[in-house]
Amino acid sequence: MLREHLEEIESNIQSACARAGRSRESVRLIAVSKTQPVSAIEEAYALGLRDFGENKVKEMLGKESQLPEDIRWHLIGHLQTNKVRQVLSKTVLIHSLDSLKLLDAVDFEAMKQRIVVEGLLEVNVAEEESKFGFLPEELWGLLNRLCQYKNLKIRGLMTVAPFTINQEDNRAVFRKLKEISIDTRWNTLDNISMDILSMGMTGDYSVAIEEGATIIRVGTGLFGARNLGEDGQ
Rank of each mutant, 00 (worst) to 15 (best):
V57R: 03
E137M: 05
I115Y: 11
T188A: 12
L6V: 08
E64M: 12
G53K: 08
I13A: 04
I196A: 09
F52L: 09
Q36P: 05
N55P: 03
F163R: 06
K90S: 09
I215C: 11
S181M: 03
W186H: 03
M60N: 02
I94C: 01
V87R: 00
S99A: 08
R145G: 02
G48I: 04
K34N: 03
E210F: 09
P136T: 02
D169P: 04
I41W: 00
Q86W: 01
G119D: 13
V27E: 00
T35D: 07
W73I: 01
M201I: 03
S99W: 04
D70C: 15
N187M: 10
M60L: 15
D190M: 09
M1A: 15
T188E: 14
N55K: 04
L142S: 02
V32H: 01
L139K: 04
L67G: 08
N144Q: 13
S39A: 12
D195C: 10
E168D: 13
R24G: 09
D190I: 10
S89G: 10
R185G: 04
G224K: 15
E210C: 14
N12W: 01
G232F: 06
I180T: 02
L2C: 06
F52I: 08
H78Q: 13
N144R: 11
A208G: 12
Q66G: 09
N166H: 12
S193P: 07
P37Y: 00
I154T: 02
E137S: 14
N144L: 05
S206V: 15
I13W: 01
E210D: 14
E69V: 11
R22V: 04
A18F: 13
E109I: 13
Q167G: 05
A172K: 14
E4Q: 12
V116T: 11
R226W: 05
L47A: 03
L67Y: 12
E59C: 06
V125Q: 00
D169S: 13
L189W: 01
L189V: 07
M194G: 07
V57Y: 03
S130L: 04
R171V: 12
V38H: 00
D195N: 14
E128W: 02
C147H: 14
F52K: 08
D183M: 05
E211F: 10
T81F: 00
Q233N: 13
Q86R: 13
I71E: 10
V87W: 00
I76R: 04
V160N: 10
E129W: 01
N166Y: 15
E4I: 09
V27I: 08
E64T: 05
T91E: 01
K90P: 01
R145V: 10
R24C: 15
L102P: 00
I182A: 01
R145K: 13
A208E: 07
E69I: 07
F223H: 06
L88I: 10
I216C: 03
K178A: 14
R145T: 10
D104L: 06
Q14M: 12
R50K: 15
H95V: 13
R185N: 13
N12D: 08
K112C: 09
I115W: 10
S96N: 15
K150D: 07
G203C: 06
A46M: 08
G141Y: 08
L6T: 09
D51S: 02
G62N: 13
I182E: 11
G77K: 03
M158W: 06
V173C: 08
R155P: 04
R114N: 14
A126C: 14
N82G: 02
V173Q: 03
